[in-house]
């Protein structure tokens, strides 16, 4: 890992219109992503976690402009991605590739593996047909399949093997950044471990930078150098993986971590069971979006959105427990115990 920044995201937003009525007029919007900022350093793995619908996939897709952002900036190696023309964007996709959750849905069932893997090279006009076929065979071996698999169709592979094909496809253009959206969540535990190990090996071998989106906190801790926790379209906390797990600051992060079942029957955990459901992003709560479920809620929380701030070097948190308003207002404030998740 270096200290050089590969990707920088500033105040990224995506509002999906909700249409209704006979005329299909816009009657509201889903605030899928509501002002997210972060940086990714060259060679690191940034994990993004959060529960269903919090905006992880939308964020990931916006980075590649598979979804157009409503607002905000994305800089890749100091190029402003949001300003690129369609053709320049296509060129940039050589450097930024995506791996998807469902290996079934993301591979064309009517194409051979060879055709699937060659596709990105053709799109970018890389190599002669012979060189491309050679490269396909090379990559199949690299991801732990065999070159004779090139002539087979996706349905002839197991889920884990299909995910290896998905990874091989992403690697074809020798990208710098790979955005992996739930790369192992459709896989069995024993296969999941194989794919995670493969991703780590490839990262070392090709100096890859990863953004890994996942809802499994164990997986994210294992693979990430830094982790961002999202809640209802916003980043609640962002810091090094070790710190996040050992000393979470945000009440949501604490609850989320304590909710994860630990594979050890003798482990006595201090579990914080949150009440209530995740609110809808079309009608998010005022102020801090977490205030409807937060055990530390204060008056200021319902009124003012807490900004993501650097509380300690490299540890960012968006919560009034750590702002001046919060400290001033905090009559009923109790600071969460540190290291609750020991």
């Amino acid at each position: 890992m270096t200290t050089e920044t590969l990707l920088r995201v500033e105040n990224l937003k995506k509002h999906f219109p909700i249409r209704g009525g006979v005329l299909g007029k816009e009657i509201g919007s889903v605030k899928a992503v509501e002002g997210v900022s972060f940086e990714v350093k060259k060679g690191e793995t940034l994990g993004i976690v959060g529960e269903s619908g919090c905006g992880k996939s939308t964020t990931g897709r916006m980075l590649l402009r598979l979804i157009e952002p409503t607002d905000g900036k994305i800089y890749f190696e100091d190029q402003d991605v949001t300003e690129l023309s369609t053709s320049d964007m296509r060129k940039l996709r050589r450097d930024m590739q995506m791996v998807f959750q469902d290996p079934f849905a993301s591979l064309n069932p009517r194409h051979t593996v060879e055709k699937i893997l060659e596709e990105p090279l053709k799109v970018h006009g890389i190599g002669t047909p012979k060189e491309r076929k050679q490269k396909v065979r090379e990559l199949l071996e690299i991801v732990g399949l065999s070159s004779y698999h090139a002539k087979r169709y996706p349905h002839q592979f197991s889920g884990g093997q299909r995910q290896r094909i998905g990874i091989a496809r992403a690697l074809m253009t020798q990208p710098k950044l790979i955005i992996a959206d739930e790369p192992v969540s459709a896989l069995d535990v024993s296969i999941q471990a194989q794919v995670l190990n493969l991703m780590q090996d490839l990262q070392k071998e090709f100096q890859l930078t990863y953004i890994v989106i996942a809802h499994d906190l164990g997986v994210v801790r294992h693979i990430s150098d830094r982790v961002g926790v999202m809640y209802l379209g916003r980043m609640a906390e962002l810091t090094e993986s070790e710190k996040m797990y050992d000393k979470p600051l945000h009440p949501y992060t604490q609850a989320l971590l304590s909710a994860v079942p630990i594979p050890d029957p003798l482990y006595e955990k201090d579990s914080i069971v949150l009440e209530g459901d995740i609110p809808s992003p079309s009608n998010p709560p005022s102020g801090c979006a977490f205030h409807t479920r937060c055990p530390y809620k204060m008056d200021v929380c319902t009124q003012k959105v807490p900004e993501l701030r650097e509380h300690e070097p490299g540890h960012y948190v968006a919560c009034h427990l750590y702002t001046e308003e919060g400290s001033a207002a905090g009559q009923n404030k109790q600071l969460p115990e540190e290291g609750k998740h020991e």
Partner: peptide, 24 residues
């Protein structure tokens, strides 16, 4: 044993996960 070792346990950071070779 392989299954238990394959699970990334959130409490610790392992360098590398144990993985069972082959397919289900």
């Amino acid at each position: 044993r392989g299954l238990i070792q394959s699970v990334p346990d959130m409490r610790y950071k392992k360098q590398r996960l144990y993985s069972i070779p082959g397919n289900v």
